[in-house]
């Protein structure tokens, strides 16, 4: 579309001169008015495409092409700068037989669950509280977004200090209630909880604001009616608020799932020297870290590409499941 527009306008530097290419297309020189009408039609039809073209061209260059190229690479054995060698599905079968890949997949799943579920639950609660009339509401609304504005690296470095087994604040506090020295990085579950707490801390406020925006669109009369029927605040929240913002909840679940599948920076920085392998026992190596490990530590770009594509397929699968759930839900509401 963009090219046809360009051909027309390049071919007609001055409107007074008749454009040969336009003429050929129309097959009739015609009066200037007819040409103008044609140009006008072309403009209304084509220019929207021209306006959106820059994005789609950039998307093709930086989104679609890498996506397809990665898929192509995943069928090859390739090191940086060398020629790729076709190996068929071997990269994928290698992954299937590789225990580290399955560990990474499990870690990604468990980290995803323990970071996403509390995060969204807390976000919806916070949004509900912020929806009330209270003093300094604006301040609180800005404050909960502050973690989102900090960089992953900065936040993670602070959490590393908090979770330091020897002198960290968390272990000191736990010591007061009689819980022994928790190894926040070398033991599997403590390490995963520590990492998911970083994720939760960063994203809760962001999701809360999205929920808040949705809640404010819920008509006030629904609450009034519920209150007249004698519904408590909690009952109102369950029976009015949550059903009204259900599409938003689905949206945040999808976005958080995508984020959780791509979890990378937090575990990498949290692990320090053993970040890439996700701890000395791979106890928190996520799929993204495994991909990075394969690609940039080992230098096997083909295998790393295979991991990338597996991640994409997993996301598509999760997305499809969520879509089905959403549809069946709608049908239920509709009937």
């Amino acid at each position: 579309m963009a090219t046809s527009v360009r051909a027309t306008s390049d071919g007609s530097p001055r409107p007074s001169r008749t454009d040969p290419s336009t003429n050929r297309k129309s097959g009739d020189p015609g009066p200037p008015g007819g040409w103008r009408a044609k140009a006008y039609r072309l403009d209304t039809k084509a220019s929207p495409y021209a306006y959106i073209a820059p994005f789609f061209l950039c998307f093709a260059a930086f989104g679609l092409f890498p996506l397809i190229y990665t898929g192509w690479l995943s069928f090859h054995q390739v090191e940086l700068g060398t020629h790729a060698k076709w190996v068929g599905l071997q990269n994928y079968t290698d992954l299937w037989n590789n225990s580290f890949f399955w560990t990474a997949l499990r870690n990604t799943f468990t980290l995803g669950v323990i970071s996403t579920v509390p995060q969204l639950a807390m976000a919806i609660g916070l949004a509900h509280l912020l929806n009330y009339h209270m003093r300094a509401r604006g301040f609180f609304r800005v404050a909960i977004l502050a973690p989102y504005a900090t960089s992953i690296a900065a936040a993670t470095l602070v959490f590393i200090q908090l979770f330091n087994p020897d002198y960290g604040l968390i272990n000191q506090l736990l010591g007061h209630v009689g819980i022994g020295n928790v190894q926040w990085s070398s033991s599997k579950w403590p390490a995963q909880i520590a990492i998911s707490s970083i994720v939760t801390w960063r994203w809760t406020g962001y999701n809360a604001l999205i929920y808040l925006a949705a809640m404010q669109a819920v008509p006030g009369d629904l609450y009034e009616a519920a209150a007249l029927d004698g519904a408590s605040r909690w009952r109102q929240f369950i029976s009015v608020t949550v059903p009204s913002i259900r599409p938003t909840i689905f949206f945040t679940i999808i976005v958080s799932t995508i984020g959780a599948t791509q979890l990378f920076g937090e575990p990498l920085i949290f692990g320090g020297n053993v970040g890439v392998s996700g701890g000395s026992d791979h106890q928190y190596q996520t799929l993204s870290l495994y991909m990075y490990d394969k690609g940039w530590q080992v230098g096997e770009l083909g295998q790393a590409s295979a991991v990338a594509w597996v991640m994409l397929l997993i996301l598509l699968l999760i997305g499809a499941v969520q879509l089905l759930v959403l549809r069946s839900n709608r049908r239920k509401l509709g009937s």
């Binding site: 963009a2 527009v5 360009r6 027309t8 306008s9 390049d10 007609s12 409107p15 103008r36 140009a39 006008y40 072309l42 403009d43 084509a46 220019s47 021209a50 306006y51 073209a53 820059p54 994005f55 061209l57 950039c58 260059a61 930086f62």
Partner: peptide
């Protein structure tokens, strides 16, 4: 005349977008 001017502007934008992408790539 105005219409073709607009088309050209659109084309210029498209070309500029292309050029921007190309600069980024190279």
């Amino acid at each position: 005349m105005r219409t073709s001017g607009r088309t050209r502007k659109a084309a210029v934008i498209a070309v500029a977008g292309l050029a921007a992408c190309a600069t980024l790539i190279t």
